[in-house]
Amino acid sequence: MLEIKNLHARIAEDGTEIIRGLNLSVKAGEVAAIMGPNGSGKSTLSYILAGRDDYEVTEGDILYNGESILDMDPAERAAAGIFLAFQYPMEIPGVATMQFLKVAMNEQRKAHGQDELTTPDFIRLVKEAAGSLDISMEMLKRPLNVGFSGGEKKRAEILQMKLLEPKLCVLDETDSGLDIDALKIVSDGVNSLRSPDRATIVITHYQRLLDYIVPDTVHVLSKGRIVKTGDKSLAHELEANGYADIINEAA
């Protein structure tokens, strides 16, 4: 489903290279964890996948279902089924969460040649998805993410993911700032979306999240490259021994 080939990317503004020859392949149905120390390029990778123009790809390619997405803008990528759950979701005053959800769902439907949702259908879908994430309708009347707690923001991200039904989910440090109860709710939400035709990339610093969202593959990112790939036992190894050994071994 996703094929990243020898990707090099830098910060557009100052030219600092962050991703340095990254290769990664994720199949449909797979849950891939990307782990790495601070500054290894984890969040940058997630932004590049989503199409943020603060980063410039200088070499290599990202193939999604066999086609390059480098020329697609973020909205086109999202409509094609790529979803990024943000580490720090934006607070947007003046845009009601419900309004935002409706516009997002209908824009994607439009891109797929489907009719817009009727208001009753829309509300029914939101209620169903929100209930399982312990999100109240009251919260959804508020401006998008404004005044939401850290946990509420992360749950709202998963709500969006459930409603938009992407094919490739990228979760950027979704566990950061979550207590154990919220972590469980969020993980259940992610797990409910596991399916043979959907791939998930879980970006995390800690192994803890991977007890709840069990990965098929684990990749260690260091200095902008994948330096080691394994199964879920690799995550435990990292938890026990830290990143230093593996990174030194790779170097």
Partner: peptide
């Protein structure tokens, strides 16, 4: 803000309009 809205599939024009 624009990137966040677009990352949900909202076209640039619509996203700008919303903001």
């Amino acid at each position: 803000h624009l990137f966040y809205l677009m990352a949900r599939g909202i076209s640039e024009k619509t996203a700008r309009g919303l903001l």
